[in-house]
Design a protein around this nucleic acid. Structure first.
Lengths: 355, 355
DNA sequence: CTGAAAGCGCTTACAG
DNA sequence: CTGAAAGCGCTTACAG
């Protein structure tokens, strides 16, 4: 036997028709009140809202949307769950969208090709799309532009080779690497060893570009200053990868005295590797990480790193999307970039005296 | 100007009515074909399916659901994104549900109280619910039982104090701790220091229970054998927490020679702490972690740990839910538990000679 | 300021 | 085996 109480879950009142009957009004008027349309007697508004409050009634979203209302949902396309920074961004995005009254439809692009993704966006009547992580499928850029032309705005929260043709709001990774390189040059280092940044993906490409820019600004030749490793070890684990790379650098005749790593985990592994090789950090080698992850704070020595300002860049991206939603889709001619922050800790120090 | 091509995104055919007109059949028949109902001429089935294939047409999900069809969606209630094991489970759950033809409606319970959650489940016509992580809100258990009574099955993928009243399919954490304790006892250790397991949450409670069981099985008194720390340090970071705990143990007059940690990050921090205190691992102290996370493999020394068999336990939980969906909701009188696996590595060794 | 009616895109009895 | 009609729960012109 079901309780007839209005407080029951689900609400005893299941449709606007029932609600209308309960308050003695027509469905039309109840609908107006529920949708905050003007021109309804305040007395009736109060009466209905009070019942809604008490019962937790909400109109069936499927019929609302079917009748042409906004779906109030945004597709959030995540490249993968297996990257903690992406997940952190996703967390923020979901919260910010909820605060703005939108539901996130989370899609994992690992599991779905982008044609299916775009179709799903149309089908679910998503009002906008947010991309998190690296999405470099051929043809995606064009389809995202068609989406915009059809009134569905988007934003990428990470670097994309499509920048200029699609909207990118992210951290200025190139600038981050400039900051890192300038810090190391100021400490007297002459060469920078690169750990795990190959430039295949857009986020990495931007980082290499920034390093080159810093080098050229000093009228030096990137080829001589930036040292990458020829035959990188396999990358099943960031930490062992970093450890292995450090060992390879340690085996070189003339090892650079400073290093920048793809991320803090690799930097941490490098710290271990240098310790195994008897190379003191930062006395004999300086290491800069990326992300300002927990490990960079708690490692011994703590790791100098670049803070991506994830919360701010995500907030900027979401705000950019919401603004398009209020007005109409736009295409940014260039990425909108936030300046990252260099966090100086104990893994970087003055270059050792030259051999 | 829109392309009239059938291959366009979204499909040029937008409704079953258009599809029906295009193939020269009634909406009824097209609907039957789309829903794979029997008793339609094969010729017509082929014709329609071919157009569907070519255009990517799919019926409007909102009208389908409104008309009383299954929503083909499952609410996945995640406690938080800030715990990597939960995220890993979420990843698997989403994939397994997709393979079974269900869409995951991801809810973050940090952001929503459970009354709102239950209402959302009803409103969205979710056909079932999966809980990931710790959900100990008062009243939740009763509401989940009401859901089951209303035909909406559920499963918790982590220990819950509601076990026996709600369905729990998870790893046997108590058994895991028995395995760890037996391993340490077999190595000659007499006391076990506990790092970060306080029994406040169900997952921790189960772990303490397992330790006590292992101790009692040897006719010993848990109070004398299991050593917890009185005034635990603050836990902003698992690694520094583990480091600090190790230092506190190291400062004791009679320190246990073996330790079990809440997770691998804490165990790793403990390794650092012991190194700082000049205590060799495993010669002077053995440490067991939990999770078989990447860090346990790559730490130096590598960390003996308990593998939760996340993939298998999640698969069992999802399968259990799907089975209920095929039949009807049930309530398990006791948790369904998978046996975890002890992974012996280099952080555990024979107890040192007694002082 | 309010209500009766039409219609969103589907599925499902019902009739043939 | 197929089609015309009704109806899911809502919102929105339209009429008053």
């Amino acid at each position: 036997v079901k309780k007839p109480s209005l407080e029951s879950l689900p609400s005893a009142i299941k449709t606007t028709a029932e609600l209308a009957r309960y308050v003695g009004l027509s469905r039309s008027t109840v609908s107006r009140i529920l949708n905050r349309r003007p021109g309804v007697k305040q007395k009736n508004v109060d009466r209905v809202m009070q019942v809604v409050e008490r019962t937790g009634f909400a109109p069936n979203p499927y019929s609302r949307i079917l009748r042409g209302q906004r779906s109030a949902s945004i597709a959030v396309c995540l490249a993968t769950f297996r990257h903690s920074t992406f997940v952190r961004k996703l967390d923020r995005v979901v919260q910010l969208l909820a605060k703005a009254g939108y539901t996130a439809l989370i899609e994992i692009s690992e599991n779905i090709d982008h044609v299916a993704l775009i179709r799903r966006i149309h089908r679910m009547r998503a009002e906008g799309v947010i991309f998190i992580g690296q999405h470099e499928q051929a043809g995606l850029v064009d389809h995202v532009r068609e989406l915009a032309a059809a009134g569905i705005p988007h934003v990428f929260t990470d670097d994309s080779f499509g920048a200029g043709k699609v909207n990118v709001v992210t951290v200025d990774r190139a600038r981050g690497m400039e900051l890192a390189a300038n810090h190391l040059f100021a400490l007297g280092h002459r060469q920078i060893g690169i750990m795990g940044i190959f430039g295949v993906e857009p986020v990495e490409y931007a980082r290499l570009e920034g390093l080159r820019r810093a080098v050229k600004a000093r009228h030096l030749d990137p080829v001589e200053i930036l040292i990458n490793i020829n035959n990188p070890p396999s990358r099943e684990s960031s930490m062992t990868f970093g450890r292995e790379i450090a060992l390879r650098f340690a085996a070189m005749t003339y090892m650079p005295t400073a290093f920048v790593a793809l991320n803090d985990e690799i930097a941490f592994g490098a710290l271990e590797g240098f310790r195994m090789a008897g190379i003191a950090v930062p006395a004999a080698a300086s290491v800069v990480g990326f992300d300002n992850a927990e490990i960079s704070r708690v490692a011994l020595p703590s790791i100098t790193t670049i803070d991506q300002r994830v919360d701010e860049s995500v907030a900027a991206a979401v705000e950019f999307l919401l603004e398009q939603l209020r007005k109409k889709p736009v295409i940014l001619a260039r990425p909108r970039l936030l300046t990252p922050e260099l966090v100086i800790r104990d893994s970087t120090g003055p270059a050792p005296a030259r051999r």
